[in-house]
């Protein structure tokens, strides 16, 4: 009798422990990758003139840093889970190439995940973020302050042919032609589409660097390569070209 009771208890215990309860939420690791029209770009590809943009100009990349903020997961009912955080990616620093959400995201199938390239108007507060100040990521007060959204730098070969530096820096556009400066927001909320978030999810967000020079404006570095931060029109064009730079890559598991 005693033995039977023990056996039943053991069986019950095993049955209970075997049935694991699946987690209902999870942190999500986001990996940022970069390519030039499909060809992978990493730090080791920097400093060599090896890319040709849509205008036909040969160029190199020497620096690529950009800011992503407010990653949003919208479920089938339209409810959004927003990761209120920001992340500065510096392609020369491997440790910045991924970001794990501090917030747990409900395990679910989402009809859309979106990211913000740069800071939206609420978050772009001058001098507010000490890590970004430490990274010298600020925008001068004369241009409205706040922070850079991207610094893409390198050299291109002009017609002479001479290699010339370019600084494709994206910030909030400021028009200083009038008595008081007026601003146009240039952050980009990019919808990346449907996504299933499973436990320990890892998702890849891809940047096609070539897009910055391609669509809708075929970028001519010969005329727009330097001093673009105070150039209102250039910032608007950059914003246009940035719309299709990001896409969703692999999702695991």
């Amino acid at each position: 009798m005693k033995r039977s009771v023990i056996i039943i208890c053991v069986l019950l215990f095993c049955a209970c422990t075997k049935k694991e309860i699946a987690p209902t939420s999870t942190v999500v690791r986001i990996n940022f990758t970069h390519n030039w029209d499909g060809t992978s770009v990493s730090n080791s590809d920097f400093n060599t003139i090896q890319y040709t943009n849509a205008f036909g100009t040969n160029l190199s990349i020497e620096k690529l840093r950009y800011l992503i903020s407010n990653i949003s997961f919208e479920n089938q009912n339209g409810k959004k889970t927003i990761v209120k955080a920001y992340h500065l990616i510096d392609v020369s620093k491997e440790e910045t190439m991924s970001f794990t959400t501090a917030l747990e995201i409900p395990v679910d199938i989402y009809k859309n995940v979106s990211i913000t390239f740069g800071f939206n108007i609420t978050d772009n507060i001058d001098g507010e973020y000490i890590d970004l100040n430490s990274a010298s990521w600020n925008v001068p007060g004369m241009l409205g302050g706040g922070y850079h959204f991207m610094q893409l730098e390198g050299k291109f070969t002009d017609a002479t042919p001479t290699d010339i530096g370019y600084q494709y820096h994206v910030i909030r556009a400021v028009d200083r032609s009038g008595a008081t400066p007026s601003f146009t927001e240039t952050f980009i909320e990019k919808n990346l589409g449907e996504l299933a978030v499973n436990p320990n999810a890892e998702i890849e967000i891809k940047m096609n660097i070539a897009e910055w020079f391609k669509n809708p404006t075929t970028w001519d570095l010969n005329t727009l390569h330097s001093m673009l931060m105070p150039n209102y029109n250039a910032q608007i064009l950059m914003n246009g070209n940035g719309q299709n730079v990001f896409s969703l890559g692999s999702v695991n598991p």
Binding site: S136, N138, P140, M142, Q167, M227, L228, P230
Partner: peptide, 14 residues
């Protein structure tokens, strides 16, 4: 701080 003048801030902070 002016990118069209000295543009010192990109390397030397602000």
């Amino acid at each position: 701080m002016d990118e069209t003048k000295g543009d010192c801030f990109h390397c030397h902070g602000s």
